[in-house]
Design a protein around this nucleic acid. Structure first.
Lengths: 298, 298
DNA sequence: ACAAAAGTGTTTCGACTACACCCATGG
DNA sequence: CCATGGGTGTAGTCGAAACACTTTTGT
């Protein structure tokens, strides 16, 4: 499928271009991505001749392939290095992050099955895998790369930064610790087709960074929700926990959210007030500066 | 150049893919971008069959076309909407930001000739153009879009955020105030070919955002420099001024910079100590968290 | 001497953190 | 009545912003 021509005196190629989607949802307290097969594969589709915009192309093929209507969509990165698919031809993939409401359909993979070390919420699984990975990394990093390793993994006094998910994946890859290579263990997660796991890591990094300065969580929430529920979703995506009283306070201080008047009695203790996203204020695209608290645990 | 085939039951196209570079340098206190012609055009080149990575392709064609060796390179965004070039065929452009040292060669355009409103450093030109643009925007925005307009332009108590350059360009575009359309004035800057001015705005936004959390300015500095010189370059890119004593203090507090021992007597008043970028600490890619102060003027 | 730029000390302010504690409900 | 989650008040901490002031050169 290569049609060389000449321009600027050098070879010009006409190549295949695909769109790849990382569709994220949160189911209970579990983030999931759309990916099926073994090994897992992200949904991908072509540019459509009849669609004017890339996003429209993306929305349509995701709808057709999976039945999901995407809310928020954001372009991530374009991958085009030679040999991505294991063969010589160049494949260009424009990757997107999309947010969708959870459902019970097939094809949803737990995000932290793919990148287990990114889930730092307290739990037996988290702690076990963590020590194993840290040991392997320390062994590999010593001594030249130990500054980088401890920075990325929040060791030696550095804070753990959720949004460095991609850089952590890249370090594991360099260290030969990811599932696609030989030294992989259970703690380094499930492999995917081609470089799809790197694309997922890219999406997670971007999502976590975006969370800190744009109100995108609400794309994952129903119309009315409690602040506790909102906190659970944020924590699920960030992979770590926040200080509850402060979270409650800060939500709404920015005018992000307004009470509906209703209450939810199903939460366990005292009934929680229901809120809705104050969308009126944010219909204008790209309004920034509306921070949600995101954990920066030590 | 369209070769339709079938997959997923829909049309798949093989398309032309180009790389587009926004190469930025700072000459004195003037930021410049590589763009020649009338109207101006960004350097663009093909994916190279023989280059493994996109960045290598980019570096090589920029070197060949312009003689410039790029330091820092970062992928920006992939543009592929139909009709970008004014004709029906789809053109995919993968855009990059590159930083280079200034020189006196041809082809350098002043960045703020293209986006004049982005330069808020005190000066006669800045103030004149600003009131004109603000008036036009207020007229267009009233009343539905005035929240967005005042947010983006730092009106009504909002701070001016340098990194929103792209969003400001997009608003001007929607308002029909950019040079490419009819209502343009001198204050809305010089037009470019196709959507190249949007790409420049994208690059400026990204560069300003990156400045805040990664030590990329040093790619634009010579080996030894004074803190005053560093401040001028940061201010040139940010388009606004910083509080001098604080800037001096903060530089170096993060261990970013170390004295060479030399001094520069050519600065006007008291001679300034020379510094060098503490590169040893930052050879590892993607070390984050090394903030440089960036203006957040009212 | 004085302008001009370099450089230091100190205070203020606001955002985020952490801790302590009260509230309302279901079992 | 007590466990559980919802909710509020308030003190501490840290870094950025602002202000005042000293130092060192060239002319």
């Amino acid at each position: 499928m290569e049609v060389p021509s000449h321009r600027y005196g050098v070879t010009v190629s006409t190549v295949r271009v695909d769109l790849v989607a990382v569709v994220v949802s949160v189911d209970g307290q579990t983030p999931r991505v759309l990916a099926a097969g073994a090994p897992r594969r992200l949904p991908a589709g072509p540019l459509r001749a009849e669609q004017t915009s890339l996003q429209a192309s993306l929305r349509e093929f995701v709808l057709e392939q999976t039945g999901h209507r995407l809310g928020f969509v954001e372009q991530l990165y374009t991958f085009a290095d030679l040999g991505r698919g294991g063969h010589a031809a160049r494949e260009v993939s424009i990757s997107y992050l999309g947010l969708a409401h959870a459902d019970t359909g097939p094809g949803w993979t737990r995000l932290y099955d793919l990148l287990p070390w990114e889930d730092r919420r307290p739990g037996p699984r988290a702690d076990a895998g963590r020590v194993e990975i840290v040991r392997a990394i320390r062994a590999w990093a010593r001594p030249d790369r130990s500054a980088r390793a401890s920075f990325l993994w929040g060791l030696d006094g550095h804070p753990w930064r959720p949004e460095l998910a991609l850089q952590r994946y890249e370090l594991l890859w360099e260290a030969g610790l990811v599932a696609e290579s030989s030294d992989a263990t259970e703690a380094t997660g499930e492999g995917m087709v081609q470089d799809h796991r790197r694309i997922v890591a890219t999406a997670l990094s971007r999502l976590r960074a975006t969370l800190q300065y744009r109100p995108v969580v609400f794309e994952l929430m129903p119309d009315a929700f409690t602040r506790g529920r909102l906190q659970v979703v944020v924590e699920a995506l960030a992979g770590s926990t926040v200080h509850t009283p402060n979270f409650r306070r800060l939500v709404g201080q920015h005018g992000l959210v307004e009470p509906t008047g209703g209450v939810d009695h199903g939460t366990g203790g005292r009934p929680a007030r229901l809120y809705r996203f104050h969308r009126a204020l944010f219909t204008e695209r790209d309004l920034v500066g509306t921070k949600l608290p995101v954990p920066r645990a030590r």
